[in-house]
Design a protein around this nucleic acid. Structure first.
Lengths: 214, 214
DNA sequence: GTCTATATTTCGATAGAC
DNA sequence: GTCTATCGAAATATAGAC
């Protein structure tokens, strides 16, 4: 009801090479399960969304879901993979330590902004179900995937970064999510997504401030 | 484990008149239940926190909880009341329409910042369990309490407010929460809460921008 | 690949003794 | 005000036919 204005399953962006393992043609049942789950996880939250509900809305039975996913958490993990497929390793320097330099943050956030805006639903879902994702990581599952929040904490614990920059980083990231949230609580007049992108960039840069003196 | 650096149950601030109905002396069992629940709702989320767990950590049995609260949701509602007791009606103009003027936002956010920082846990809990709170409101409970998000949506749907200001408002609010989040993921050196407050003010004002031309 | 059962578990909530 | 014991509901997950 709230999220009907969002784009549907815009997983693959205008650049290739983001295909996920196990996700073949775009309209097999597995993908449709994920699409429905994504909507429900945003609307009601992961915990309060039952498999019966997902199956019902999809026109199949619960048991059919278990043919495609071995558990409910497995569905959440698949959506997690979708998200990381979008981010790629281009952002947040998961390999190196490029993100340790606050000078590079404005450009990085610009990049992140585009990807998050183009795939709002995934990021809104991740934000709304942070507890569920952390529980998943705590139980040791979700191998081979670093979370966004893992990189987030790495920066927060880097002694080379000043408290001011840490606050800026944390606030900028949250501000971005707050900007995404606006697309659900409002009827965006026409396709003024570009205007929103500009305003969001403005807000994020406002948080990050001037790298030099102030 | 994560939230042990947070202050414990700082419900009543340095100004009086925030007592809640049904909350008498500060250390009766009812209050202790709420304190434990607050911690667990932050750490594991509302849904994944069982009453057995709350009771165990408190050294009583499940049934004892039901003497003080008539349901699990009732515990959540009580914490909701705690939060609104803090906010009072001074902020966000729940009665009038004072918050409709973007000119007044910087001062309002300064006020909000202090209250949120002094009672981080309540606001972090609210943010982390947004789905649970919305579900509560959807089911018609929580009478007599307007939610923060209700006022939030009112602003988003006010046609007199420009999209830029709406984005700024939404981002500023989220940025504030992002700033609170920093207190959980980091060991704040000493009691540098005042320094954090300054940096947060800086960040929020950065989002809100100049009211005049730009 | 999808169905009809059914197994298993956990949780919220209640009854009644003390 | 707290306890023991239990009920009932709902959810995840599985077994096996088709």
């Amino acid at each position: 009801m709230d999220a009907e204005a969002l784009s549907k399953g815009a997983v693959v962006q205008d650049h290739g090479a983001v295909a996920q393992a196990g996700e073949t043609s775009p309209h097999d049942t597995g993908e449709r399960i994920l699409d429905v789950a994504l909507d429900l996880f945003i609307e009601k939250g992961y915990d309060k969304t039952s498999l019966r509900e997902i199956a019902e809305q999809l026109g199949v039975t619960k048991a059919a879901l278990y043919y495609h996913f071995k558990s409910k958490q497995d569905i959440l993990m698949a959506l997690h993979s979708r998200m990381h497929g979008l981010l790629g390793d281009s952002i947040l320097g998961l390999g190196g330590g490029a993100s340790a330099d606050p000078q590079s943050w404005p450009a990085m956030f610009d990049d992140l902004l585009d990807k998050m805006l183009a795939n709002r639903k995934l990021f809104l879902m991740h934000d709304r179900n942070r507890a569920a994702f952390e529980g998943m990581h705590r139980e040791g599952h979700d191998e081979a995937h670093h979370d966004i929040e893992a990189e987030f904490r790495r920066i927060l614990n880097d002694p080379a970064i000043s408290l001011r920059d840490k606050v800026r980083f944390s606030c900028a990231q949250s501000a971005l999510l707050g900007g995404l949230l606006i697309t659900t609580g409002i009827d965006l007049p026409d396709a003024s997504l570009d205007e929103l992108a500009d305003l969001l960039r403005e807000a994020v840069h406002g948080v990050l401030g001037q790298p030099t003196g102030e």
